[in-house]
Each structure stands twice: as C-alpha cells, then as structure tokens.
Design a protein around this nucleic acid. Structure first.
Lengths: 96, 96
DNA sequence: CGATTATTTAGATTGTTGTCTAATTATCTC
DNA sequence: GAGATAATTAGACAACAATCTAAATAATCG
C-alpha cells in the first residue's frame, strides 16, 4: 500500500465526500455522481484515484459499476498514520 | 483545523520524514535540512506547509529556529480520519 | 559597524492535479 | 443490429506544488 497515494487521495474534499457516502454501503458511479456538482468524467477521475490508492473497490453489475470502501485497508492506514506521529518507531525512516 | 491542508501536508514524503524526526523531539531548521538531500529554501518551504497545516510549531532561539510537533492536533486528526471512514457519523457531510 | 552564520522570501521553472467537452466502450432492450 | 443508458477514456487547459538559485532578513561576535 502506497501511503503517498492514500494521502493524496484523501487530500481532495470531493474524494473524502465519496468515501463518506460509501461508508453507508456500496453505491453506483451514477448515484455518487448525482451527489456532487461535477461532471461524470470528473467523478470518474476521482473514482480512479481512490482505486489507485486502494481505498475503494468496484464491481460491474450490468450497466452499472458499484463502488465500495476497501475496509481491509483502513486499519493499515490508521496504524501507519499513528506510527508516523509516534516517537517509538523501531523502523526509523523506512516507511516514509 | 483544515483537514484539507493536513492531508496535503502529509502527502509529501519529505514532510512525513520531517514529522518522523520531530517525533523524537524538537529540531532546528538546519538539523532537519541536513537529513534530506534538498536545499535549505526547499526545506523551509516544507516547514511552512507543515506550519500552515498546524502540524508543527516553531520558536526562535538566537539564530536558530526550533521546530516541534504540534501534538495537540494529532488526536483531532486521528478522530476525524476515523470519522471519515465510519458509517455512523451523525454530522453527515458537514466536515468534508 | 562589518563579517559570518542561520533561515526565510522572491521569482522562475517544471511537473502534477482537477476540471471540462468530446469521443469511446459496455450493456440492455426492442 | 439500432437506439438508449451508464460509465470511462482522451485530450486540453488553468491552477497548484516542488524545487532551484539569488537575494533578503535576523542574530551573533569581534
């Protein structure tokens, strides 16, 4: 997991909004897009960034693509953020 | 605290490196700069970004400027990241 | 005050990101 | 297969970010 990509993905408010919506369960690309004042291609770009960071997964069902939170990544992210701020990390700079 | 700025600040590996070093205690701008293969003005820029995000504080002592982690912000950051991923946030989208 | 050291600010450059419109792919239905 | 719908990909463009060199500010010390 690339911590860099995770932070970049989270640094955009639209993407945090997408994540928040997905916290309530999977949604189609169209449903998510309807919640933001932005074109669908722009939303599609944000989906791609979130997928690249491994924060969401997608599956196609017919014409629609459903997005979900990749919950298995969250614990890892939190641990590494915690480590980042802690002073007792035995690994030194290895996970910068 | 602007979550946007926090994530942007953390999305650069040099800045995460600075934070990690500061986890061991305060350091001068010069000490921090010596740990990275980058000019001092570039490092100074990173310090400014971290300060802007309220992740570090600084104090001058003579010719040197000492940087420290702003530890009071960490708990807040962690809480808000946690909320971001949780499905039971009563505030809806208010803290995007 | 003049020289030296520590650090920041200014300005330029190059690469990256967010957004759009237009075009494309994938699927469904008739 | 043709038309309609859902979503992505391609390409362009403006705004932003990371880095550098050169210049400026701040403090110390003789």
């Amino acid at each position: 997991m690339a911590l860099n990509q995770v932070f970049k993905a989270l640094s955009d408010p639209t993407r945090r909004g997408i994540i928040r919506l997905l916290g309530h369960g999977e949604r189609t690309a169209g449903e998510l897009s309807a919640s933001f004042d932005m074109t669908k291609p722009s939303m599609s770009h944000h989906f791609a960034v979130l997928k690249e960071a491994d924060l969401v997964t997608s599956r196609r069902d017919g014409q629609q693509i459903y997005y979900s939170l990749n919950t298995t990544v969250l614990e890892d992210v939190m641990t590494r953020i915690w480590d980042l701020f802690g002073s007792d990390n035995p690994k030194g700079n290895s996970i910068l």
